Computed example of a mutant assay.
Amino acid sequence: MMKMLFKKRDQPFVYPDYYLQLQNWWAGRMSEVTSGLSKTKLICMLILFIVLTGSYFIYNICVTMSADDPLFKNTAAISKVKAINLKK
């Protein structure tokens, strides 16, 4: 089974047409939006994007961990593993 997963393909993977059209549309749109920006502005926007998305994800993790939901706080709610009764 594993050998089949790692076997080299005879034919290359072909993407669906809608995916290629969406990819071309997105590339064209981003070229239009960023065509007038300098390299410095592009790097600043990339850094800003990384900082904003990273802080958003960290915020979501912190809110989830510090929630007052009893599911997260109550360790007694965790059930013990039950043995499986095997018929002999």
Results as ranks from 00 to 15, higher is better:
Met4Pro: 03
Ile78Met: 08
Ile58Met: 07
Met1Thr: 12
Ile84Asp: 12
Gly28Pro: 00
Leu5Ile: 15
Thr75Leu: 03
Trp25Ala: 06
Lys7Thr: 09
Asp17Gly: 02
Asn60Lys: 04
Leu71Arg: 12
Ile78Val: 13
Lys80Glu: 15
Val51Asn: 13
Thr40His: 03
Lys88Phe: 11
Ala27Pro: 01
Met4Asp: 13
Val81Leu: 11
Lys3Ile: 14
Lys82Pro: 01
Asp17Glu: 13
Pro70Tyr: 00
Lys87Met: 14
Leu20Tyr: 02
Lys88Asp: 09
Gln11Pro: 00
Lys80Gly: 03
Gln23Ile: 01
Gln11Trp: 02
Asn24Thr: 04
Ala27Lys: 02
Phe72Met: 06
Leu46Glu: 04
Val33Arg: 12
Leu42Thr: 00
Thr75Cys: 04
Leu52Arg: 07
Asn74Lys: 09
Lys8Pro: 12
Asp69Met: 07
Ser66Phe: 11
Ile78Thr: 06
Leu46Gln: 07
Ile50Thr: 10
Arg9Ala: 13
Leu42Tyr: 00
Ser79His: 09
Met30Trp: 02
Lys3Pro: 02
Cys62Glu: 07
Val63Gly: 00
Tyr56Gly: 12
Gly36Lys: 04
Lys73Glu: 05
Leu71Met: 09
Val14Arg: 08
Val51Gly: 05
Glu32Leu: 08
Thr53Met: 15
Asp10Val: 03
Ala83Phe: 00
Val81Lys: 14
Ser55Val: 15
Thr34Ala: 04
Val81Glu: 10
Lys87Ser: 13
Leu20Ala: 04
Val81Asn: 15
Tyr15Val: 10
Ser38Leu: 01
Lys7Val: 03
Tyr15Asp: 14
Ser66Cys: 10
Ile47Met: 11
Asp69Ile: 04
Phe49Trp: 11
Ile61Gln: 06
Met65Ala: 12
Lys80Ala: 08
Asn24Met: 08
Ser31Leu: 08
Ala76Met: 05
Ile58Glu: 07
Pro12Lys: 12
Leu42Met: 09
Ile58Cys: 08
Asn24Gly: 03
Pro16Cys: 07
Met45Asp: 08
Ile47Tyr: 01
Thr40Ala: 11
Lys80Phe: 03
Leu5Pro: 04
Met1Trp: 13
Ile84Pro: 00
Ile50Arg: 14
Thr40Asn: 06
Gln11Thr: 07
Leu71Lys: 09
Asp69Asn: 13
Met1Gln: 15
Tyr15Trp: 13
Gln21Glu: 14
Gln21Cys: 06
Lys3Met: 12
Ile47Pro: 00
Leu5Phe: 12
Ile78Asp: 09
Tyr19Asp: 12
Gly36Phe: 03
Phe6Pro: 03
Met45Gly: 09
Glu32Ile: 02
Trp26Lys: 10
Asn60Phe: 01
Met2Ile: 13
Phe13Val: 15
Pro70Val: 06
Asn74Tyr: 05
Met4Cys: 10
Cys44Ser: 12
Pro16Thr: 07
Asn60His: 03
Asn74Ser: 08
Lys3Tyr: 13
Val81Trp: 09
Ile43His: 05
Asp69Phe: 04
Gly28Tyr: 02
Ile78Arg: 11
Asn85Leu: 07
Trp26Gln: 06
Lys87Asp: 11
Leu37Val: 00
Gln23Ala: 02
Phe13Pro: 02
Pro12Asp: 08
Gly28Ser: 09
Ile47Ser: 11
Ile61Tyr: 05
Thr53Tyr: 07
Gly36His: 10
Lys80Asp: 13
Phe49Arg: 15
